[in-house]
Simulated assay, not measured.
Amino acid sequence: MQTIVVRYLETVIDKTSGAPSQVVLGTETYDDIREALIPGVPRPKPGKAPHPVFITKCFVNVSNHLWRLESVTSTAAIDQQPAVFSVLIQRHDVSREIFLNQTLKKNKSLTAQKLIGRQGTLVEVDYGFVQQSGRTDASSKTNKRYMDTLLEAEMHKRRLAVVVKVISGNLVQVAPVTSMPITLGDKSAFQMEQATLDKMPRYQNSGKSSFVLGSMLECVSVQRILPPISYFKNGTSTGRNVNYIVALSKAEEKLLKSALIHAVGATGYVPHNDVLQVEIKANKLQERINQLTVELAARVAELTARTEEVNRLAPVQALAQDWAASMGLDFEEELEFQRALAEENGQ
Rank of each mutant, 00 (worst) to 15 (best):
C219G: 05
P271C: 11
S237N: 14
S249V: 12
N241R: 06
I245E: 04
A247P: 04
A263W: 09
R224P: 01
A247H: 10
P228D: 07
S221V: 12
I261R: 07
N234I: 12
T236V: 15
K257Q: 10
P271V: 10
A263P: 01
F232M: 00
G265Q: 01
L260H: 00
K233N: 12
L260M: 06
E252Q: 12
K257I: 15
L226H: 14
A263F: 11
G239R: 04
T238H: 08
V270C: 06
V242K: 08
G235R: 06
S237T: 13
N243R: 14
I245K: 01
V220K: 09
V264P: 02
T236E: 10
E252M: 13
C219P: 01
A263C: 05
E253G: 04
A266C: 08
I261M: 03
P271K: 03
S221F: 11
G239V: 04
T238P: 08
H272Q: 12
Y244K: 09
V264N: 06
N241L: 10
N234F: 01
K233Q: 13
I245S: 07
A247E: 15
S221K: 02
A266L: 14
V222H: 02
K257G: 02
S237V: 01
G268S: 06
A263S: 14
I261H: 03
A247M: 08
T238E: 14
Y269V: 03
Y231F: 11
V246N: 05
V264W: 01
R224I: 10
Q223S: 15
K250R: 09
V264R: 07
K254V: 12
I225C: 11
N241D: 15
E252P: 03
G239F: 04
H272P: 08
Y231P: 13
K233D: 15
N243I: 07
Y269P: 00
G235V: 13
V220A: 01
G235L: 09
A247V: 04
K257Y: 11
Y244T: 09
R224E: 14
L260A: 03
C219H: 00
L256K: 00
L256I: 14
L255D: 09
I225A: 08
P228K: 03
I245W: 01
V220W: 06
H262N: 05
R224N: 15
S249Q: 07
L255M: 15
Y244S: 08
C219N: 09
R240T: 11
K233H: 12
I225N: 03
V222I: 15
E252Y: 07
N241K: 06
A251N: 10
Y231A: 09
C219L: 05
E253Y: 10
K254P: 04
L256R: 00
S230H: 03
V220G: 01
P228F: 08
K254Q: 12
Q223V: 13
A251D: 10
E253A: 11
L256N: 00
A247T: 15
N243C: 09
L256W: 02
K233V: 13
V270Q: 04
A259P: 06
H262E: 02
G235H: 00
P228M: 09
N241G: 09
I225G: 06
L255Y: 07
P228Q: 06
